[in-house]
Design a protein around this nucleic acid. Sequence first.
DNA 1: ATCGTAGGCGCC
DNA 2: AAAGGGCGCCTACGAT
Length: 568
Amino acid sequence: MSKRPDVQRGDNIAIALQPEVGIGFAHADNQWFEETPDPLGSLAELNELWSPRWVWWDRFTAGQVAGAGVPIDRCWDVATVHRLLFGGWKTSLGEIWASLLSLPLDSLPRMGQLGLLDMPEDDGDRNQPIQPDGHLRPEWVSGESHVCGEHLVAWAALALRAMKLQEPLLDRLPDPGRARSTARSESAAELLCAEMATEGLPINEAKALELIAEITGPRATSAIEDDRIREERDEAVLVHLTPRQPVNLRNPAEVKAMLRRQGHDLPDTRAWRLEQLSDSDPLIAALLKWRRAERIATTYGYGWIDEHVRNGRLRGGWSSSDGAAGRMTASAGLHNLPAAMRSIVEAEEGHVFVRADLGQIEPRVLAAVSGDQALIAATQGDDLYEPIATRLGVTRDIAKVAVLGAMYGATTGESAHALAGLNKNYPVAMGLLEEAAESGRKNRDVFTSGGRRVRMWSNNPGDGDLDRAVAAGAARGRYARNAIVQGAAAEFFKVWAITVRRRGRSLRAEVVLCLHDELLVHVPEENAAETATLVLDAIGEAAHFWSPDPTVRFSADVSIVKRWSEAK
DNA sequence: ATCGTAGGCGCC
DNA sequence: AAAGGGCGCCTACGAT
């Protein structure tokens, strides 16, 4: 192992580290180990000194970096770039390595699944992370092995090798420069995710408990009491039935049958369907109210607070890309908190939230990725649907439905009627959508403008039914059509988010929530105005960096609030 | 008992 | 205005 080499700003340096042990580095042909009980502290120093691009395997390292608060902006997360290149998600490092080297996946070694008959023959040197067959050694993948210095160095060096294998794959995509940009921005977004998971979302816990009590009743102290509270909740619905009869409201089939007996023959009992009937039937109004309360009782009740809130912060897992078009995902209810509960998300003492959401992001992104000049012209104003409506000679509402329908693959109703006008007036954008849909129908993967592979799926083998095959093809068509817009929007959003993260650091502005087109930034009051300006400016910066067309206009609503619920 | 799936709802 | 794409999480239910 050599000493620290000369490093140029922006060089790639791979790391693997272990608290109390040290940190292994790999930089071009140099590898070295620094023994220190505080490897993250020395990482912070070197980050300031060199400002390199840090390379690591996956969110395990990102989590350590986030936990220590090391202010890293540039990184390369091998697992994140893998998801960009290959689609899908929740891939193990063993599979990632095998994919990069085109090793057969059926020979992938697994931990703890060796039968008596397949005990390994000679499986090589256990101090090497690679087996003789080329696969990653499973005990290294599961993180049990790389704790001593030499192993940390080997593990870092392998991450650098993985990156070097990924780069030429990115270069094979239609727009290599853009694909490499996406690899970097998606890696930074993964680090942001690790930080959000570590830091959590500020919650007023006392208010949360009050609100839960208001909606679902007091906290039960026994199973019997819990049953009683549930029955009381059910009773508010069942009281409207004539004749009175027991119905399990938690069983959709029973609810559907109950509604049919009351004269409502519905294909399903979805809320948007029931809402249209709630004015005329008190049973339905009561059922909708019951569902809102039941939802909070089961998902966002006392158990949810107990499980996820500590020291005034709600913590959940974050992933920078889902397995489809690449949107961020979050667990612990962070992405689907009912509107009625958003008042519990409250800035801490002396702090406020800067909340911002991108306006009409998907059609603007469609304009950017398709280069449709007529649609680009429509992005110049605050409202994109108005000029489209004028051009099509329809109302704004119909224009909006038609545009959304075109992006989501709607086939019926008013939107299908207006589709002809869209095809005629915006042929480039509509052509791109149709091309994606056609790829999907033919079971060919599609790619977002940033280069993310969106995987299709086969029909069930043996399912020879032609109608079902056609239906599956149509479903893939809608999926692909939507994915190229939704996925590109997600890429733009992430560039925006990491720009705010990077530029907000000096203002102590902390991104605490990302919600597809919405950002929540927690910041000391005195920096609120400056942060709001920054968030808005960051849109222009993100567009400059991301947008295939520099003339598309993006915009956002920005407000400074104490509680999430106060905005809009 | 434990698992996967379907139907449903919350959010975007 | 109409009901399409994504996710996480809930319950019920049938298969193992």
